[in-house]
Design a protein around this nucleic acid. Sequence first.
DNA 1: AAGATCTTCAACCGCTTGTTT
DNA 2: TAAACAAGCGGTTGAAGATCT
Length: 294
Amino acid sequence: MVRAPCCEKMGLKKGPWTPEEDQILTSYIQKHGHGNWRALPKQAGLSRCGKSCRLRWINYLRPDIKRGNFTIEEEETIIKLHEMLGNRWSAIAAKLPGRTDNEIKNVWHTHLKKRLNKPNQMNSSSSSDNTKRVSNKKAKIKRSDSNSSTITTLQSSEQTSLNNGNNNLAEMDTTSTSSEFSSATTNNNGESKNMDMNIKSEELEDSSLETIIDESFWLEAAMDDETTNNNNNMTISNNSNELLPSLQYYDDPLLFNSEENLSFQEPSTNFDDGMDFWYDIFLRTGESIELPDF
DNA sequence: AAGATCTTCAACCGCTTGTTT
DNA sequence: TAAACAAGCGGTTGAAGATCT
């Protein structure tokens, strides 16, 4: 593919947009829409490349853009979705109406990432939201290629701490920059399923939270967090066409609220709907999920 | 008060993906 | 089928403002 010449070589303007340019772009799109971004600047009379116009419109001028600080709920959502989706900002933005991928990316890098890396701040916060933030920090998505994805989980260590009152990550080699360990989960038939957990150095930094936070914290979190209300095991077929989860509930009333009735439907193979489905499953179970090929 | 350092975020860049010819 | 094109995505940059020393 031949790359389109950059703005500079075309003699087009770069850098911050002026209010006049904003006005021209806004009024043009309101009148004519944006059929072809490449042709738009010329037709609108702007000395910008189409790419720049598109970005300005999508990230700033669009009428449905939500302005102002992110709410706690929005931050929660970003954190949860980031655990599932990783740095797939556009996919995360799709779940937050009025927010752009760029904005979410910035918020993640400037606020949320730091916050999650500072357990003291989370514990000292007056808001219970931070408790949820940590307790929800159970899984990460691993998308090694476009055909397969895995939501991996830190819950095995968490589970150990809850069940045994022992909060350590004994199986992890925290001295290496990239470690692997496996956790065995049990399916309905009592069979174990090994789940690879590829922990990169950055993730290790995050997972070290679990080693710092004491047992009582996790007990509180378990009581507080909806994701631990249903502490299920899930059987997942290797065949992506047969991804119907089966559930096995723990008897522990502390961890499982039997009042809540879980029901499942056939997961969609459409990415957005499918992600909704698996995200919901993930929230309910906190368990690793191998995603199908959407 | 002023310079240094840090933080934030709009914008850019290069690459990938999807569509058209 | 391949090339060309357009749009979209995520990583990165850099200017401006805030905070620190």
